[in-house]
C-alpha cells in the first residue's frame, strides 16, 4: 500500500493537475447529481453528457468549415460548444411539461451519439477527439480546468448550503414550491443550466463516462447512506472525492485508465450502500 502511495505521489509533478481536476470535478458533479437524482432525472444526465459531446463535435466541424474557429488554434471553441449544447438540452428538458419523460432523454442520447460521429465521419482527427471524449481520460486536464472547477465547486456549494430548502422543495414538489411563492420555474431553469454547464465543463476535461458516472453514482450511493436529503448535499461530494482518490492511486499503480477505475469503484460502492439502505428500511 505504501509502495502504491509512493508511486502515486512521485507522479504528482506530471499528473498532479489531472488528479486534482478529477477530484474537484467529481465533487462538483456529485453535488449537481443530488438534484438530478432528487428530480428522478438520472437518464437526463446521460442525455446531457451526450448533448455535450455533440456540442464538441459541432465546434470541431465548424472549425473545419471556418478556419477562424479552428480548435487547434482556439482550444476554447470545443469547450464552448460542449457547454452550449448541454445547457440548451437541459433547458429544453425543463420546458417539457410534467415529469421529463425517459423517451425524451433517450431520444437526445441517441440523436447526439449518432450525430457527433456522423458530423466528423470524414475528419480523422475529429473522430479521434470524439472517441477520446467517449472513452474518458483525465490526462488532458489543464491548470485552467483546475481553477474553473475549484471556483464552480465553491459557488455551487455555497448556493446549495444557502438555499437548500427552496432548491430541494422545488426539485421534489414543484407545485407546492410555486404555491408558496418561490420562483420555482426560475429555480428549475437555473438548476438545469448550472447542471448543463457543469456537464459541459466536466466533459471537456474528463470525458463522457467519468462525467455521467460521477453525476449520478455518488448521489445514488448517498441516498442509501443518509437519513436526510440535506445530508446528501455533502455526503455525495465527499464520497465522490474519496472514491476517486483511492481509484486514482490504484489506477496509477496497476497502470489502468483512472477514469474507468474511478467509475468502477463508485459503482461497486453502490452495492453495499444499497444493502445498508435496505436493512435500514426494514428497521423500526
Amino acid at each position: 500500500m505504501s509502495q502504491l502511495l509512493d508511486d502515486f505521489l512521485s507522479s504528482w509533478s506530471l499528473f498532479g493537475t489531472a488528479w486534482l481536476t478529477g477530484w474537484l470535478c467529481a465533487a462538483l458533479l456529485a453535488l449537481l447529481g443530488v438534484f438530478t437524482v432528487a428530480r428522478r432525472q438520472v437518464l437526463v444526465g446521460l442525455a446531457l453528457s451526450q448533448a455535450s459531446t455533440l456540442g464538441t463535435a459541432l465546434a470541431i466541424w465548424l472549425g473545419e468549415l471556418a478556419p477562424s474557429l479552428d480548435h487547434h488554434q482556439h482550444h476554447g471553441v470545443p469547450l464552448v460548444g460542449a457547454c452550449l449544447l448541454a445547457v440548451v438540452a437541459a433547458h429544453l428538458m425543463t420546458s417539457l411539461r410534467g415529469r421529463v419523460p425517459d423517451a425524451a432523454a433517450a431520444w437526445i442520447w441517441l440523436a447526439c451519439s449518432a450525430g457527433s460521429v456522423l458530423l466528423l465521419a470524414h475528419s480523422p482527427h475529429g473522430t479521434e477527439e470524439v472517441e477520446t471524449l467517449m472513452f474518458s481520460t483525465l490526462i488532458g486536464a489543464s491548470e485552467l480546468d483546475l481553477y474553473v472547477f475549484g471556483t464552480a465547486l465553491l459557488l455551487a456549494g455555497f448556493a446549495a448550503a444557502r438555499w437548500s430548502a427552496p432548491l430541494l422543495l422545488t426539485a421534489t414538489d414543484l407545485q407546492t414550491a410555486r404555491a408558496l411563492g418561490l420562483p420555482a420555474t426560475w429555480i428549475t431553469r437555473a438548476t438545469a443550466w448550472v447542471t448543463g454547464l457543469g456537464i459541459g465543463l466536466a466533459l471537456h476535461a474528463t470525458g463522457t463516462l467519468y462525467t455521467f458516472g460521477y453525476l449520478v453514482l455518488p448521489a445514488l450511493t448517498a441516498r442509501h447512506l443518509c437519513r436526510r436529503m440535506r445530508s446528501m448535499l455533502w455526503v455525495a461530494p465527499l464520497l465522490a472525492v474519496a472514491t476517486s482518490m483511492v481509484a486514482f492511486v490504484l489506477a496509477h499503480g496497476a497502470d489502468l485508465p483512472p477514469a474507468q477505475v474511478a467509475v468502477m469503484a463508485q459503482a461497486v460502492l453502490l452495492v453495499p450502500a444499497w444493502s445498508i439502505g435496505r436493512i435500514r428500511r426494514r428497521g423500526p
Binding site: 437524482v37 432528487a38 428522478r40 430548502a165 427552496p166 430541494l168 422543495l169 421534489t172 414538489d173 414543484l174 407545485q175 407546492t176 414550491a177 404555491a179 408558496l180 411563492g181 418561490l182 441516498r223 442509501h224 443518509c226 437519513r227 436526510r228 436529503m229 440535506r230 445530508s231 446528501m232
Partner: peptide, 26 residues
C-alpha cells in the same frame, strides 16, 4: 398549501422534521 399527494421519490431519505421543515422554504 397541501397538495393531493406526496410527490417526493420514496427512494430519497428524509425525516419527518426535514420534510415538515421544507414548508418554511423561502
Amino acid at each position: 398549501f397541501v397538495p393531493q399527494r406526496v410527490t417526493l421519490d420514496d427512494s430519497l431519505p428524509t425525516t419527518v422534521g426535514e420534510f415538515v421543515g421544507l414548508g418554511l422554504a423561502g
